[in-house]
Design a protein around this nucleic acid. Structure first.
Length: 645
RNA sequence: GCCGAUGUAGCUCAGUUGGUCAGAGCUACUGAUUUGUAAUCAGUAGGUCGGGGGUUCGAAUCCCUCCAUCGGCUCCA
């Protein structure tokens, strides 16, 4: 009896019942049969040797498919476990899944020391085992037998996994001398794993819960070809060169100092320019969008954070209070309560709404020491913050306007890859993690979801990630080196305005509580500049570049003319410098190129006589000569073009 | 906060088993050179080897501890 197998191109082939996906692969080509790693059968990923019992849609997965990669990496985790067990027979294993770049396995070494130095021998053993080409053999087992198996082996981790599994669905996989409880699927045999790199060893809490003991997590990555591993390692090296911490130091943008304290960045003059330019852009954009600017103190009394409700939720991550005059004062970790106080003071009617209060507010958050990370996670941050107070009827328009502002910024900065994460609440945590008002949560989440759908904004919805006062949207972006950032945030607050007793007079002369939108399209200066450094690899667009133009006299005879040119630039709102060191022009050019200065003006006798400059562009070389005024016009036109998109 | 690693001039790094091991290049400064599109030459200066304790005749090197950073975990209003 035959079954009909439909392939991705919609072609249909017949096979005897009980044929395997591998048989399908063989029928297509020998090469495919050699390279295929797993199969997707009616949407489910399976081993290649599982018999097909009925008509099915079959996609054969290779290294070029994400699912194929993941299958191989999952199998690689098993291979690593086999190698670990060879050297450390007493270790116990938790789980070993594939991840974005490779795989890991969580291991309990039971007190045996294991460090990065030990990775090499595991790697070598893996390579040796991989060459044996051992098949991954699937075996079904009853729950009772599985429990007995792991009880005999005294393995609390696998017993814990078993406790959540249903009888009749329990499978084991064996390759070589290693057997593991595993749902699969796996690649046919270990010989597909041709290049192996164990990248990292780190601690990881069991079940990702910080109350649990810590296991040793070993990360690795494998490839079907040695050349792909080499390419991957090269890419990692390239990524390191773009790291904002490295470029930030080289370009003198920011620094940290032990005496100032961890997570407290010092902005050097070049960083100061970046901040000034970003703020100029934000303030202009917000002014056009009808925002009003306010300024508020860096600290406030405990009572305000009790009113806002932040303190019970976030006391651990706020700096401890200062106590004086019998009062506790906290450094602010957020600007909203201060802004709420301003709203309250303003005594508004519906005619005054929406009210949009903006501030580049400086906040302090006591992030755990292990979380600090360059400019990305710091303890002092300055937010592109604003709070929009509006009526329910105005909500959709306001929310949309905020999203439009995001998109405008994305265009200016050339951010093409982004995802909006829509975070909602978890009903069982009302009253703990979330303010206890089920109806309002659902109503507000619907409002946000509807806006997202109606305006066709791509988003993913994640449960149990909301702020305590309402649902939120986080904008995830990726820097050029693949690092993921939560850049912007857009949050709905239906709870805190009421806690502050914020009201406006509506058209019926009744008092009504406004909805508040918290939004920060440019996130914080710290994280945004960190992102931009990696995004541009330090090659900032002209308008943003800390030094825009380096004037390089051929010899000190032309320093006078160079300084005159500089004055013209400064008077035209351009930033420049004169390199009047006693160096040859080649050296000056090299240094300016290394500093990633967008334009260099080489000047000598000819230029001085003509009142011109010889223009060189960073990374592009000689661009010919222009009169000084022509060059200024060109710069101003370029900046205007970059900002008006 | 937890697990692991790292910490030598402003920067990037050498310093083998504890004994002229406190070094190099770049930067800076001084002098010579007066230069045409990615490194001119020479000289000078610069470090309690992250801080503190300990072992030793002797510690950058071994041990303890604290701090910071890095890779993860947890967390992120």
């Amino acid at each position: 009896m035959n079954i009909k197998i439909t392939l991705p191109d919609q072609s249909v082939r017949e096979f005897p019942k009980g044929s395997s996906p591998m048989d399908v692969a063989k029928s297509i080509s020998e090469g495919l049969a050699r390279n295929v790693l797993a199969a997707k059968v009616d949407g489910e990923i399976q081993d290649l040797n599982r018999p097909l019992e009925q008509d099915a849609q079959v996609t054969l997965l290779t290294w070029n498919d994400a699912d194929g990669k993941n299958t191989m990496w999952h199998s690689s985790a098993h291979l690593m476990a086999e190698a670990l067990e060879f050297y450390y027979p007493t270790v116990k294993f938790w789980v070993g899944p594939p991840v974005e770049n490779g795989f890991y396995y969580d291991v309990d070494f039971g007190g045996i020391a294991f460090s990065a130095d030990d990775l090499k021998k595991i790697e070598d053993k893996m390579a040796e085992l991989a060459k044996q080409g051992n098949p991954y053999v699937r075996k079904e087992m009853s729950k009772a037998d599985a429990i007995q198996y792991f009880t005999e082996r005294n393995d609390p981790y696998k017993l814990d996994l078993l406790s959540n599994l249903e009888d009749g669905k329990i499978t084991f996989y064996t390759q070589g001398n290693f057997t593991d409880l595993c749902r699969g699927p796996h690649i046919p045999n270990t010989s597909h794993i041709k290049a192996i790199k164990l990248t990292n060893v780190a601690g990881a809490y069991w079940k990702n819960d910080s109350n649990n003991p810590m296991l040793t997590r070993i990360y690795g990555i494998t490839f079907p070809k040695k050349s792909e591993l080499e390419a991957y390692l090269t890419m990692v090296e390239e990524a390191k060169k773009r790291d904002h911490r490295k470029i930030g130091k080289e370009m003198e943008i920011f620094t940290f100092d032990d005496d100032v304290g961890p997570g407290l960045p010092l902005w050097l003059p070049n960083g100061g320019v970046l901040i000034e330019e970003l703020e100029r852009l934000a303030k202009k954009t917000e002014a056009v969008a009808g925002y009003k600017r306010v300024r508020t103190p860096h600290l406030a009394k405990e009572s305000m954070y009790l009113t806002s409700g932040h303190l019970p939720y976030y006391a651990d991550s706020m700096y401890p209070p200062m106590e004086f005059e019998g009062e506790k004062y906290y450094l602010k970790a957020m600007n909203c309560p201060h802004h709420h106080k301003i709203f309250k003071e303003m005594n508004l009617s519906y005619r005054d709404l929406p009210l949009r209060l903006a501030e580049y507010g400086t906040c302090y958050r006591y992030e755990q020491s292990g979380e600090l990370f360059g400019l990305m996670r710091v303890r002092q941050l300055q937010m592109n913050d604003a709070h929009i107070y509006c009526t329910k009827e105005q909500f959709a328009d306001e929310f949309n306007a905020v999203n439009d502002m995001y998109l405008k910024y994305f265009r200016i900065f050339g951010i093409e890859k982004y995802v909006m994460r829509f975070s909602t609440h978890e009903p069982s945590k009302l009253g703990q993690k979330y303010v206890d008002n089920a109806a309002l949560w659902l109503e507000t989440e619907d409002m946000v979801r509807n806006v997202l759908i109606e305006s066709k904004i791509p988003y993913v919805e994640v449960a149990d990630e909301g702020a305590f006062y309402g649902p939120k949207i986080d904008v995830q972006v990726w820097s050029a080196i693949g690092r993921e950032f939560t850049l912007a945030t857009n949050q709905v607050d239906f709870a805190v305005p009421a806690r502050f007793g914020l009201t406006f007079r509506n058209a019926k002369n009744e008092m009504e509580t406004p909805i508040c939108i918290h939004r920060a399209p440019l996130g914080t200066h710290e994280r945004f500049i960190g992102f931009l450094i990696e995004h541009y690899a330090g090659n900032f667009p002209l308008w943003l570049a800390p030094e825009q133009i380096a004037i390089l006299p051929i010899s000190d005879k032309f320093n006078g003319y160079a300084k005159k040119v500089l004055q013209v630039l400064i008077n035209s709102d351009l930033r420049g410098l004169v390199d009047d060191r006693d160096e040859k022009i080649g050296k000056k050019i090299r240094d300016a190129e290394m500093k990633k200065i967008p334009y260099m003006l080489i000047i000598g006798e000819k230029e001085e006589q003509e009142n011109s400059v010889s223009v060189r562009q960073h990374g592009k070389g000689d661009q010919g000569s222009l009169l000084v005024q022509e060059f200024v016009d060109k710069m101003q036109a370029e900046i205007k073009a970059l900002l008006s998109v």
